[in-house]
């Protein structure tokens, strides 16, 4: 069953085309990694999926609901799609626990106690239950990103979007975040990840999408992408050779 589908999605900033007729579909339980050079439109694409960025052409459907339809309740849609940002974007004035509770209480209408119970369980899962009363600034980058993942999970999302979740982290912290993401994938979460972590892609992804200049250039299985490079486009080969060099 298709969870997220994109059909000929195009987007312009003024006259500059940032997304060029992007078409793909993500099945339930699938883990898809999007990679490509910087400025290729990866982040813009996944921000279009939960309508953080508007797009001008094409359709995006999440669980059958059209994102571009003006009648769609975007808040409700966003509440069902978890998102993790490059710079964590935890709310600095709220404790870790309150970061997780806020939307559960305000959007899902959970009681504070029910929300806290769910939040603590999720913090337990990402190994940070004992940090619940701290403020974000008191945690390391890796811890903050794990809290951000827990915060997204607290809404019981049907899919998760990751926007370069490890690129603002020091190397030793990348692993702890990728571990959390791998576990999530094994549990069957539908995931769309913009990332340069090719090791993660190789281990966890089902499919790899390669983007360049706003267009989806490659959309193939993980094995095809990594093990059969000669069948890939020149641009993807160049990109891969650069990123896998070290």
């Amino acid at each position: 069953m298709t969870m997220i589908s994109l059909d000929a999605v195009s987007k312009w900033y003024g006259t500059f085309k940032v997304l060029d007729a992007c078409t793909t579909a993500i099945e339930r339980g699938e883990v898809v990694v999007i990679c490509g050079p910087s400025g290729s439109g990866k982040s813009t694409l996944i921000k279009c999926i939960n309508a953080l960025e508007p797009f001008q052409q094409g359709t995006i459907r999440v669980d059958g609901v059209s994102v571009g339809d003006p009648n769609t309740d975007l808040a409700r849609l966003r509440a069902r799609v978890g998102m993790v940002f490059q710079h964590f974007e935890l709310f600095p004035h709220l404790s870790v626990l309150d970061n997780l509770n806020l939307a559960q209480v305000r959007v899902l209408g959970r009681s504070r106690d029910a929300a806290s119970e769910r939040s603590l369980a999720l913090l337990q899962r990402v190994g940070l239950r004992d940090q619940a009363t701290k403020f974000p600034a008191q945690l390391s980058g890796g811890q903050q990103q794990r809290v951000a993942i827990a915060r997204a999970l607290s809404m019981d999302p049907i899919a998760m979007l990751f926007d370069e979740p490890t690129s603002a982290l020091d190397p030793e912290m990348i692993v702890e975040v990728l571990d959390v993401m791998s576990t999530l994938a094994q549990e069957g979460m539908t995931m769309l990840c913009v990332t340069h972590e090719m090791g993660f892609a190789r281990r966890v992804a089902n499919r790899v999408i390669f983007m360049d200049h706003g267009a989806i250039v490659e959309d193939v299985t993980k094995d095809a992408f990594f093990d059969d490079p000669t069948a890939r486009s020149v641009r993807a080969q160049t990109f891969l050779s650069k990123i896998l060099q070290h």
């Binding site: 939960n50 808040a75 966003r78 509440a79 978890g82 998102m83 710079h87 709310f91 939307a103 809404m155």
Partner: peptide
């Protein structure tokens, strides 16, 4: 980022200002 993070969790614009 803060605005997007709040909106991404389904908070309305008013809630986003009020709580974040």
């Amino acid at each position: 980022g803060q605005r997007q993070a709040a909106r991404a969790m389904g908070l309305s614009e008013a809630q986003c200002y009020r709580h974040v």
